[in-house]
Amino acid sequence: MLEIKNLNVTVEEKQILKNLNLNIGKGEVHAIMGPNGSGKSTIAHTLAGKPNYNVESGEVNLNGEDLLSKDPYERSLNGLFLAFQYPIELPGVTNASYLKQIVNAHRKSRKETPIDAGEFLKILKEKSKLLDIPMDMHSRFVNAGFSGGEKKKNEVLQMDLLNPSLIIMDETDSGLDVDALKTTADAINKLRNDERSFIIITHYLRLLEYIEPDYVHVFQNGSVIETGDKTLASRIDQEGYS
């Protein structure tokens, strides 16, 4: 479903990704590990289309379509979801109205009518419960003054609402305490199915103990230096990257 071929990316004239190749099949969970500065977050931002992440050469196909020529919002509407490492605050915009608007943007692209307010509230309650999110969080402004845990849960909630086919999680485990990590991981596991693929970017083994990956890739200097199964993650956890 996702094919990355010979991808070279520069940020502020510095080359970060070097001839990166990666294939992700339907329903697979891939973990990406690697030391700081190895290009883990760069791959996430490049796939999502963040400005200033310049693709010098290479190809990326998502579900058979060229991804790189699309605007960021089109990539989202085509099923790509990036859970941010540091979710952005939107002061003045209540979380409920924001969530409803992004749901409606996706409905519109499928030529569906906007969601009925009552129905939305019902879905919101259901999905918030899975994540232990109190409903009053939705009357606060998006991510503004949220704790680290609340922010990450809010990302997973959006993931659940938008029904993406490719989910990229950029260090979703950072800033979560043990309980929140478990709740979040449980919710993510419920989202796993045969159609949906995951890229999980993380420094640590602990998230991968809850969400078991099919493949583990080790990044170094902007390309994959080793690929293995979940045992690779345990080895790195014990021995480090060198």
């Binding site: 289309g49 963040k50 960021p72 919002y73 952005i88 939107l90 003045g92 915009v93 924001y98 992004i102």
Partner: peptide
């Protein structure tokens, strides 16, 4: 740009994103 990118990553085009933020303001 971070706010705009965040909203766009969730499916809003640049105008919808801007309008959301300004109306919130």
């Amino acid at each position: 740009d971070e706010q705009l990118f965040y909203c766009m990553q969730r499916g809003l085009d640049v105008e919808e994103a801007q309008s959301l933020i300004v109306n919130g303001f």
